[in-house]
Design a protein around this nucleic acid. Structure first.
Length: 422
RNA sequence: GGUGGGGUGGCCGAGUGGCUAAUGGCAGCAGACUGUAAAUCUGCCGGGCUACGCCCUACGUAGGUUCGAAUCCUACCCCCACCA
C-alpha cells in the first residue's frame, strides 16, 4: 500500500521529514495534526498546503487532527514592533474556529470514526496550565543552548526576540506531547518554518514520555517570481465567499502564470501526477488555451464553493472576457455576469441627475480615492460597459443595460456593477 | 543603570535648515505587446479641491529655535548591541 510519505513526495510536498516516519507509516495508519491560528474567521489559500496534506493523510487511512491555537494565538509570534498582537476573546476564537471548521469540511471528513477528522483547541489545556507546572513538566526538558540552536531563534537574536516568542516552541512542544498522550497523535505536519518547533515536540515526547513522535514539513510556497503565494491586489484570497467572491477566487487560479501551474496542480488538487503530466503536455502544445489553469481553477473552486459555482463563474468569465458586446447582450446573460461581480445600488433619481464617473468608481471601490480614480482615468484604465472613458464622463440613463445595470471595469479583469434600483 | 547605534511613506533604504510629498529599489495599479501568462517598454503610485494651481496630512511623541525643519535644540517614548 502506498503511504503518505510516498504520495506527498511524488507531489513535491515534502520539505523534510523525520527519518523514522517511513517505517512508522509502513506499520499502519497514523494520527497527525496541523495547527491553525484562529486569528481570522476564514482560511485563505496560503493555509491550504497543510490542509491538503491532512486530506491526503485521511485518504490514506490516517486520522487528521486540526488544532486551533486558541491558547497560543494569544501569545504567539508577535510580528512587527508596533502591531501588538490583538488579544482574542474566547467568543471570537469560538466563532472563528467554527467558521474555519466549516471550510475544512470541504477537505476533510469530520466525525468520531477511526479515521474521521477532529478539531481541538489548545486553550482547553493551556488556559488552565500553571507556570510552575509548565516549567517543571516541559521547561525542565530543554536546555537553553538547544533552544538557541533553532533557526527561528538564531535568526532573531540580532533583531531581538522576546521571552514570549523564545518560549513559543516549548508551548508548541507541550501541545504535541499533549496530543500524543491524549489523542494518540504521533505526527505533526506544518510549514517548513515549523521544523524547529515540531522537533522540539518530538524531543519532549521522547524525553519525558518515552514516546516516538514524527514530523513532516511542507515546502513554503512561493510563485515563480519569488512572491509570497496567495495574495492578489486585493489582499489575501479567502475561502469565505463573503471575503473573496467565488468569481474572484476562480479568477485567482485562472490567472496563475505558466511557470507555476504544474506545481499548483500537484499541491492543490488530488489529480494523479501522470494525469497532471498529460495535462501539462496539452498545455505546452497550446499555452494560449490555458487548459492547465482552467483545470486548476475549476478543481479548487469546485472543492471550496461547489460545482454549481464553477459553472456560474466560468460562464460569467466567458462573457466578461469574451468578445460579447455588452450593450447588446440579453438580460439573462447580463444577469449571469452581475451575479458574480460586486454590485452597488444607485437610485433612479441620482442617475437621472447624472453620476460623475469618478464618484461612481470610488463608490463601487474600483478606485480607493478620487485621486486614484482620476489618475487611472488619465491612464485610460477604466471603462463603462466595455468602452473606455475619461474623467469627464457622466453616467446617465442611456448607460443602463438590459436588466438595469451599468458595468464598470478597471484594467482587464476588475469589474463592478451599478444596479438601478426601484 | 552605563556606553554606543537607531526610529523616514506597504517594505527596504537615501536625505543633515529652503530646490523635499521627501532620491533609489521592491511591492502595487494602469497602458502597449500577448494567451485573463511571462518578459519587455511607458505612465502612476499620501489625501482633497470650483486643478496647468491651491489646501490638508506626513519623516517615533511633545514642545522650542527660525522668515523657513525630516534636517538644529530640549524633554520624553520605543528598538538594538555591548557592559553592569
Amino acid at each position: 500500500m502506498i503511504d503518505l510519505l510516498e504520495v506527498l513526495r511524488s507531489r513535491g510536498m515534502v520539505h523534510d521529514a523525520t527519518p523514522d516516519l517511513a517505517e512508522r507509516l509502513a506499520r499502519g495508519p497514523i494520527a497527525g495534526y496541523v495547527g491553525f491560528d484562529p486569528t481570522a474567521d476564514s482560511l485563505h489559500v496560503g493555509n491550504l498546503v497543510p490542509v491538503m496534506a491532512l486530506a491526503w493523510l485521511q485518504r490514506l487511512g490516517g486520522r487528521p487532527l486540526v488544532l486551533i491555537g486558541g491558547g497560543t494565538g494569544m501569545v504567539g509570534d508577535p510580528s512587527g514592533k508596533r502591531a501588538e498582537r490583538p488579544m482574542l476573546s474566547q467568543a471570537t476564537v469560538a466563532s472563528n474556529s467554527a467558521a474555519i471548521r466549516a471550510q475544512l469540511e470541504r477537505f476533510l471528513e469530520f466525525g468520531t470514526g477511526p479515521s474521521d477528522a477532529r478539531m481541538l483547541n489548545n486553550a482547553d489545556w493551556l488556559a488552565g496550565l500553571g507556570l510552575l507546572e509548565f516549567l517543571r513538566d516541559t521547561g525542565k526538558h530543554f536546555t537553553v543552548s538547544y533552544m538557541l540552536q533553532k533557526d527561528t531563534v538564531k535568526s532573531r537574536l540580532d533583531s531581538g526576540i522576546s521571552f514570549t516568542e523564545f518560549t513559543y516552541m516549548l508551548v508548541q512542544a507541550h501541545d504535541f506531547a499533549h496530543l500524543a498522550r491524549h489523542d494518540d497523535c504521533e505526527l505533526q505536519l506544518g510549514g517548513s518554518d515549523q521544523w524547529g518547533n515540531i522537533t522540539a515536540g518530538i524531543e519532549l515526547g521522547a524525553r519525558r514520555d518515552g514516546a516516538k513522535l514524527h514530523g513532516l514539513v511542507l515546502p513554503l510556497l512561493t510563485t515563480a517570481a519569488g512572491a509570497k503565494f496567495g495574495k492578489s491586489e486585493a489582499g489575501n484570497i479567502w475561502l469565505d465567499a463573503r471575503k473573496t467572491s467565488p468569481y474572484a477566487f476562480h479568477q485567482f487560479w485562472l490567472a496563475v502564470e505558466d511557470a507555476d501551474v504544474q506545481r499548483l496542480l500537484t499541491f492543490f488538487t488530488f489529480i494523479e501526477p501522470t494525469e497532471i503530466g498529460a495535462l501539462m503536455e496539452q498545455h505546452r502544445a497550446d499555452p494560449g488555451k490555458r487548459q492547465a489553469q482552467r483545470r486548476l481553477a475549476d478543481d479548487v473552486t469546485a472543492r471550496v464553493h461547489g460545482a454549481a459555482a464553477v459553472t456560474r463563474v466560468a460562464a460569467a468569465a466567458g462573457i466578461l472576457f469574451g468578445s460579447h458586446d455588452l450593450t447588446t447582450a440579453d438580460e439573462p446573460t447580463l444577469a449571469m455576469v452581475t451575479a458574480e461581480v460586486p454590485t452597488r445600488n444607485v437610485s433612479r433619481a441620482a442617475l437621472a441627475a447624472g453620476i460623475g464617473i469618478i464618484d461612481a468608481l470610488v463608490n463601487c471601490e474600483l478606485a480607493a480615492s478620487k485621486g486614484e480614480a482620476r489618475r487611472g482615468l488619465d491612464g485610460g484604465g477604466f471603462s463603462v460597459n466595455g468602452v473606455g472613458v475619461d474623467a469627464a464622463r457622466v453616467l446617465t440613463d442611456t448607460d443602463v443595460l438590459r436588466g438595469g445595470v451599468i458595468l464598470l471595469r478597471k484594467g482587464k479583469r476588475n469589474w463592478a456593477a451599478l444596479r438601478l434600483e426601484g
